[in-house]
């Protein structure tokens, strides 16, 4: 694949402001999904110094649970309740289910290895990831399920948009659909809620204290096991929300979907500064936007390369990431 610079400049000009906006819009929507997943990675890293490789699969489970709720309530063809409560219930199912799964995984796959050498829980995480993905394969026979059709997304036969894909407003002549607004605003709302939780609440402060110095936190009487479990719960809830969002926006759920999404969200967390909550948010958006512009201006096959290229660039030039903690002296 050659990369003629002139072609790119041509394409940019051809696509114009409208095209540039569309790509930005695509990037922000996808980036919001990545940001939510990245938050779970960063929080768990912050508190346990563990890269939870199974986190992407928790996102996958959330997406499937959302689809499960939809099927129970009539399926995409004929849902039995109105759209707004339907979507709320899908979110609830996906988020709670993922949250519980995250807590269970922590309890049985990571907690017993709390005092083992750092590589042990990492390997356990990989094992959990394969276990979850393969369980999903067995349960779904490798089938792909689509939720964003019929009453939600639109008619798959005619392509006519359903309520989620109606334009909500336009910029530079290009539409922003209802589901795109839903994804971005829900992400923002969840990120605000998380920031408030971490900065204002007692649990949030205990999480910060435990992340900084677990032994000192337990010397204050903080039940660090419970704080860690709560961190996993919250991170997994966010990943579950991201899964349902992706299902409503793109539609496809598949047993392997957690792998690449997890890898990109991990990249986002690292680029933002692993352990930093604002870092994960900004990192997610950065990765999403990079992917969109790379695909749009250079070519579809460049999107993944560009994302991982950014990772390498950061590792070489600024390994602590955008918001990376410069080591504050322990006192």
């Amino acid at each position: 694949m050659h990369l003629p610079l002139l072609n790119i400049i041509d394409t940019v000009r051809q696509l114009g402001w409208g095209g540039a906006f569309e790509l930005l819009r695509n990037g922000i929507v996808l980036g919001s999904v990545y940001a939510l997943i990245a938050l779970g990675y960063t929080m768990v890293y912050g508190i346990l110094k563990l890269l939870n490789f199974a986190h992407g699969d928790i996102y996958m489970v959330g997406a499937f649970l959302g689809y499960g709720v939809l099927s129970i309530l009539g399926g995409p063809l004929a849902p039995t309740i109105a759209m707004v409560p339907l979507i709320l219930l899908m979110f609830l199912g996906g988020m709670l289910g993922s949250g519980v799964l995250g807590v269970v995984v922590e309890r049985f796959a990571y907690r017993p290895l709390r005092n083992a050498p750092r590589i042990a829980p990492l390997i356990s995480a990989l094992g959990v990831s394969f276990f979850l993905a393969n369980s999903a394969l067995l349960l779904t026979h490798g089938e792909r399920f689509n939720y964003a059709m019929y009453q939600l997304g639109g008619d798959p036969n005619t392509g006519l948009p359903g309520p989620l894909n109606q334009p909500a407003f336009s910029v530079a002549g290009r539409p922003v659909t209802v589901v795109q607004v839903l994804v971005v605003s829900t992400s923002i709302a969840l990120m605000i809620a998380l920031t408030l939780l971490v900065s204002r609440t007692r649990l949030g402060k205990a999480m910060r204290a435990t992340s900084y110095d677990r032994e000192a936190a337990s010397m204050m009487g903080i039940d660090t096991d419970r704080v860690i479990a709560s961190t996993f719960f919250i991170g997994s809830v966010l990943a579950g929300a991201a899964g349902v969002m992706f299902g409503l926006y793109i539609g496809e759920t598949y047993y392997l979907m957690g792998f690449l999404a997890g890898l990109k969200a991990f990249t986002a967390a690292v680029v933002g500064g692993i352990g930093s909550i604002p870092g994960a948010m900004v990192g997610g958006l950065l990765i999403g936007v990079t992917e969109a512009y790379a695909a749009g201006y250079v070519g579809g096959q460049w999107s993944d390369v560009a994302v991982f290229g950014i990772l390498i660039l950061f590792m070489l030039l600024r390994p602590s990431g955008l918001f990376g903690a410069k080591t504050i002296q322990k006192v």
Binding site: L15, G19, L23, V29, L260, A295, G296, G300, S303
Partner: peptide, 13 residues
């Protein structure tokens, strides 16, 4: 790539 489900930017092109 076969793993892509979000074709929005490819479509923009």
């Amino acid at each position: 790539a076969q793993t892509v489900s979000d074709f929005s930017s490819v479509i923009t092109r």
